[in-house]
Computed example of a mutant assay.
Amino acid sequence: MSTGDAAATTLFADTFGGAPQVVRSAPGRVNLIGEHTDYNGGPVLPFAIDDRTHVAARICSTPGLSVVSSRAPGEVVTVDAADLQPGLVSGWAAYVAGAVWALAGTGAAVPGLEVAVHSTVPIGAGLSSSAALECATLAASAMVAGVELDADTLARLAQRAENDFVGMPCGLMDQMAVTACREGSVLYFETGPGTIRHLPFDPAAEGLEVLVIDTRAHHALADGEYAERRRSCEKAAALLGVGLLNEVSDPAGALDRLDDDVLRRRARHVFTESARTREVVRMLAAGPVAPIGPLLTASHVSLRDDFEVSCRELDLAVDTALGSGALGARMTGGGFGGSAIALIPTDRASVLVDRVRSAFADAGLAAPAIRAVQPSAGLL
């Protein structure tokens, strides 16, 4: 039993008495490149990290849901069966309730559940804490209910929970990364056709590290800006006569047909980010990791200038990382706060850490959390 599984089991016993029937865990994720392309039918390239969310569950006699989290161990949230409906559960428990609701929506006979959650995935850092919670809850609930779910089905149910229960119109990248990623690989997911491919990814073999810089800036995608970007992409696609922007066969010509400057810039990001992601895939399949650095940086510039989802803290992290010897750096996740990543030679990593911390202190900002990550296992 892993340390996280043991922590969830102990919390369960302390709260509900006795042992859980199952414990499942799901990771956070870093997106190497391919931002805001998933809901546009484009490619993404995430990998799982070793921060995980562990969910312990057991059938109980009372219909509905009782759930506790190690982040608020004395607070048991109880949701009546009649309240397992969109809009009736708020806060962190909505992700658990949404997962149970989505499973019940398949026609499965979902019993009353007691659930304990222990997580080390930072909240609001752009590392998919919500998808990890949804997927681990779905996996545990399905096992208790005797329902078999493959990775694709589980990911899509988790997306439905976030879209329709929580109210966050995310694409499928996070949930698919959480369920399908493999240790030592990045996940090449073409969201349009739904195809996946695992590419070996071992920066350490080249003397490199991927550092995650959690800026500690507020990151709450359900508060409107993310949804607005998605609406802009949908409007641009409609004006171009396609269902999704990545269905456009002539991106350059399509941009000339968009008169609205904002829509043109939003579409240009999607077109160029999709091209960058596929180029990174080609480069990783062909050889070393180091040459992808400039494409990571170009991704950040596009997200900052064309998609306008960066912020002061993310830009400072990226600019300082590049000035410290990073081969490439970019914000990762939906934006408006959260984390940046930097690809850097291992012998320069401590320099980057010191300089980023100093830059944040000089700017009067909270100290960022910085650490190296490596591709880890998906749902367990």
Score class of each variant (00 low, 15 high):
residue 150 D to G: 08
residue 173 M to Q: 12
residue 141 S to Q: 00
residue 149 L to S: 08
residue 100 V to E: 07
residue 163 N to R: 15
residue 131 A to E: 07
residue 175 Q to K: 03
residue 133 L to R: 01
residue 92 W to P: 09
residue 174 D to K: 00
residue 80 D to I: 03
residue 76 V to H: 04
residue 151 A to W: 05
residue 134 E to Y: 06
residue 96 V to N: 09
residue 90 S to T: 15
residue 143 M to W: 00
residue 105 G to C: 04
residue 139 A to V: 03
residue 115 V to L: 04
residue 155 A to L: 11
residue 171 G to H: 09
residue 147 V to F: 06
residue 91 G to M: 02
residue 115 V to N: 05
residue 180 A to W: 01
residue 86 P to D: 08
residue 173 M to G: 10
residue 165 F to D: 04
residue 75 E to D: 12
residue 180 A to P: 00
residue 153 T to G: 04
residue 140 A to P: 01
residue 148 E to F: 13
residue 125 A to V: 02
residue 166 V to E: 05
residue 113 L to D: 05
residue 123 I to G: 11
residue 155 A to E: 09
residue 80 D to Q: 14
residue 119 S to L: 07
residue 96 V to Y: 14
residue 174 D to M: 01
residue 139 A to K: 06
residue 79 V to L: 11
residue 132 A to F: 05
residue 103 L to S: 02
residue 153 T to H: 13
residue 157 L to Q: 06
residue 106 T to A: 10
residue 158 A to C: 11
residue 180 A to I: 00
residue 128 S to E: 07
residue 92 W to M: 04
residue 163 N to I: 10
residue 137 T to A: 04
residue 100 V to P: 12
residue 141 S to E: 07
residue 152 D to I: 12
residue 97 A to L: 00
residue 98 G to S: 11
residue 80 D to T: 13
residue 176 M to H: 14
residue 153 T to N: 10
residue 89 V to N: 09
residue 154 L to M: 13
residue 74 G to R: 03
residue 103 L to I: 08
residue 137 T to R: 03
residue 170 C to V: 14
residue 160 R to Y: 10
residue 146 G to I: 15
residue 133 L to A: 02
residue 104 A to F: 13
residue 176 M to C: 09
residue 158 A to S: 15
